[in-house]
């Protein structure tokens, strides 16, 4: 239900300033509020990479992915939901464990110590 593009009410068009770099835990995630939406933002410090995905785990519709453990599977960055350890690719949003539907992913950039999400 979340992987169908047109459902998104807000058109994707701008870089949203989410927080400062130091607000985000190393090798983990935080939850960003964007209007009524919740975005999970991850700083994969080991890989020097940033990722943003929807905060809701599609399995039981829980706002929890930002609190999940991140890691890799065959070098593909992923997050495990704290509830039942369903894992999702941080790059494609595909469910890597079982057949939950894919989740939304968003581009991230860092400028002058600020983190921006393209949404």
């Amino acid at each position: 239900m979340n992987n169908a593009e047109p459902v998104c009410a807000i058109e994707r068009k701008n870089w949203f300033q989410a927080c400062r770099v130091e607000d985000v835990v190393h090798n983990g995630g935080v939850c960003v509020k964007y209007g009524e939406q919740q975005i999970a933002l991850f700083h994969f410090t080991r890989r020097k990479e940033w990722f943003a995905i929807q905060n809701e785990c599609p399995h039981k519709m829980q706002m929890a992915l930002s609190r999940g453990m991140i890691g890799t599977q065959q070098d593909e960055p992923k997050v495990a939901c704290p509830f039942h350890k369903k894992t999702f690719s941080l790059v494609t949003g595909q469910c890597l464990s079982g057949d939950e539907c894919a989740i939304e992913t968003y581009p991230v950039k860092v400028e002058n110590g600020h983190v921006y999400i393209f949404i």
Binding site: N27, F44, G68, M69, G71, T72, D75, P77, K78, K85
Partner: peptide, 19 residues
């Protein structure tokens, strides 16, 4: 964890090895 991973592991860890 990072020291252990650098010294005795490879890659970036996951929900199976971190706990």
């Amino acid at each position: 964890f990072n020291e252990v991973l650098d010294r005795f592991g490879k890659g970036d860890g996951c929900e199976l090895c971190k706990p």
